[in-house]
């Protein structure tokens, strides 16, 4: 027999967050709620005499599986919001009704069931589990190995991209750059050799001429070159000396 209070606590932390699967908008919220459900289930396992399984549940489910879910959620864009408005006619209500009906019917079946409870529960300690696994269920374990290989291979096949272009060395990169006539060295920063180092003031070459492309295009497009206006004017009109100001 198990502690009733424990049951109700577990029921609360599994069922309530589980509803987020149906109603929460953000996928991340759902994932975090499911993590909570998993923890609740782990607690249930411990209560039911399966401490090892409870631990494994936390490690595997909350620690690995749900993190994998989160990881993929992040990968596909965490801010993908889902419109909860239903697009398929009748799907929502028939779906809810059917699922609720299934739940209610299963519950009614379980309630009708009379099962004598064993006076002493089992204790699923690791050693007990281990012996069981490798005695009676050893074949299943071995077959599971193949399942894991399949999973790994499958993930690789579907997501791993090998190098399709040959890897280029630094030397090759540099050669190509020179060949297309790009600057062999870094581009000058704005403000270099100029009198002012505002971002919108072009650098000056050794002859004192402004290098226009040292100013980011973005600034020009955004019309944010106001601040350096007078310095520009000065550059364009070499007759004006610094002292004139």
């Amino acid at each position: 027999m198990v502690n009733a209070a424990m049951f109700w606590i577990i029921a609360a932390i599994t069922v309530i967050p589980a509803f987020s699967l149906l109603f929460a908008r953000k996928a991340v919220h759902v994932a975090m709620s499911v993590v909570l459900v998993m923890v609740g289930l782990a607690a249930a396992y411990v209560t039911l005499g399966a401490p090892f399984l409870g631990m494994v549940q936390i490690v595997v489910y909350t620690g690995a599986v749900m993190m994998l879910f989160l990881f993929v959620l992040m990968l596909v864009g965490v801010d993908q919001r889902e419109e909860l408005k239903e697009t398929i006619k009748g799907q929502r209500w028939i779906g809810l009704f059917t699922a609720a009906g299934l739940g209610a019917f299963l519950v009614s079946i379980v309630v009708r069931t009379v099962l004598p409870v064993a006076p002493t529960g089992v204790q699923g300690e690791p050693d007990v589990i281990a012996i069981m696994l490798f005695e009676k269920y050893v074949l299943v374990i071995e077959v599971l190995g193949f399942l894991l290989i399949t999973a790994a291979v499958g993930a690789l096949v579907l997501t791993h991209t090998p190098r399709l272009k040959p890897r280029r060395t630094q030397l090759e990169v540099q050669r190509d750059r020179v060949r297309v006539g790009a600057d062999p060295v870094n581009k000058p920063m704005p403000g270099v050799y100029a009198r002012h180092n505002a971002l919108d003031v072009p650098a000056l070459d050794p002859e004192g001429r402004p290098i226009e492309h040292s100013v980011s295009r973005v600034l020009k497009i955004r019309n944010q070159t106001v601040e350096g206006e007078q310095w520009r004017a000065q550059l364009e009109d070499p007759s004006r000396k610094e002292g004139d100001r």
Binding site: L147, A151, V153, G154
Partner: peptide, 9 residues
């Protein structure tokens, strides 16, 4: 599952 997973892929 052993035979289903490869098929999905």
């Amino acid at each position: 599952e052993v035979f289903s997973l490869p098929l999905y892929i």
